[in-house]
Design a protein around this nucleic acid. Structure first.
Lengths: 251, 251
DNA sequence: ACCACAGTATGGTCTGACCACATTCCCCCA
DNA sequence: TGGGGGAATGTGGTCAGACCATACTGTGGT
């Protein structure tokens, strides 16, 4: 793994990607539009179908293309926009490689969820989805069920922030941590405390209290994932910041 | 037997990815380790080399594998960890598709850079890279050159925050906005104001003033990208109440 | 020692074939 | 006339095999 030279000549499939990208920018292709078939694309770009297919795999991985087999208006490759799925795959693999620690992921999620809650509170967006998720959450009995609606609650907050990019990031981060979420409910011995947290978050957002919403989300996540991260907090912290080391990481 | 479900039977290359992923998790493969050759992998997994190659393209796109041609210790496919490149590709394409607005990207970047600066200030990390970038920036003459060292400055902040995930996000966001950065320098008619911003950021981080660093970054980015986003109106949108308040206003 | 060249393993590319699937077409029968 | 059902078609998915470009490795000659 010593120094790789920057002399990499472009591979055929990279050329295909660049051409398609150019077409998106130039011809104004939009989500839902259809791309030429693999064989046709290969002929147009003077490459083999294999190279076209490799390019399609890349674009599919990046969440901008989806392919359907068969025939008819629904078959073929279409432009889509699914950044969240792509991000999830990315995070999952890098977590598996242990190149990103759980702490880093949880920290990033804390950052995004606090930001989302603050913005949601400030925008005064529609909170019906938020309220609905809260009510459903109260009616659950199993941890899995609770986590499901808990996710819906947090997703609703992210969407209320009005930023699709941070929403996608949040979705994928949460997805990466799902297996730890159920575990957290078990560790806490119940959902009572978490429900209180959620009501507090909801109240803060509903009243437009950005700082309160942000703080409530932080408290909530720190309850669910104890032992994470030292925040740059200032005086609003009692100083019991003595992060007693990483807690267990059940698998 | 009839367990095969609904619409999508797994494709061969997806199987290959899953196998490799399992190998990473199970056999404890690490960054720098080498994967079997494409032909060997194809034989092991009973699929064609094409399918293996499509899987490699996906893993390459996600920034976890890198392939080198030729022969010897440096040839073949290796596990790497380059989440930032993958994120950049992802953002670039989605921006091109107009499914993410410039405002959303700038907002996300604002969130991350403020967070990074606050954490860098709180951690008291090594600031030599930061200082060096600042000095080099002062010596530049062209906009392009300035932007280059400006990037180094902000990257140094992100790395000082100690979180590789947020650093990768910041890198890719910045990468997506590079073309707007040079333009911004021209619009401002010079780099004097930006330099002041940088010095203020540097000072805040060096003195451990998390709130000040966060505020300084916000002022800086709002100067560079005017007309973006309404912030949540709260004196505390990062959960950090100013240790010494937001001292100086922009000067 | 050194250099030149053949050997070889690697990814990159291409060709052409066949399969699975889903729609569309069209003929035959009721 | 209407409907049913099989054939035709077009799509991605997969495969096998070949060849190329590259870059190390080994060998032999100087």
């Amino acid at each position: 793994m010593s120094g790789w030279q920057p002399v990499r000549r472009t591979r055929a499939f990279e050329d295909v990607i660049a051409q398609i990208e150019r077409r998106i920018a130039g011809d104004g292709l939009r989500v839902g539009d259809r791309l030429p078939g693999e064989r046709q694309l290969a002929e147009q770009l003077r490459v083999s179908r294999s190279s076209v297919r490799e390019a399609m795999r890349v674009l599919e991985t990046l969440g901008v293309v989806s392919s359907q087999v068969g025939r008819g208006p629904d078959a073929g490759a279409f432009l889509i926009s699914r950044p969240a799925e792509a991000l999830s795959d990315l995070l999952r693999l890098h977590l598996g490689l242990s190149n990103l620690s759980l702490e880093e992921v949880v920290d990033a999620r804390l950052m995004i969820e606090k930001w989302s809650a603050a913005h949601a509170a400030a925008h005064g967006a529609d909170l019906s989805a938020l309220t609905a998720a809260l009510e459903r959450m109260e009616a659950t009995t199993t941890a899995e069920e609770f986590v499901e609606h808990d996710t819906a609650f947090h997703v609703a907050i992210a969407e209320a922030s009005g930023n699709r990019l941070t929403t996608a990031m949040m979705l994928s981060l949460r997805d990466s941590l799902r297996r730890y979420a159920v575990e957290a409910v078990g560790r806490l011995g119940g959902t009572a405390g978490l429900m209180d947290d959620h009501r507090r978050i909801h109240r803060a957002i509903a009243t437009g209290d950005a700082a309160g919403a942000s703080a409530a989300v932080e408290d909530h996540l720190r309850r669910a994932y104890p032992g994470i991260s030292r925040a740059p907090r200032a005086e609003d912290d009692e100083g019991l910041e003595g992060q007693q080391g990483r807690s267990d990481r059940v698998g």
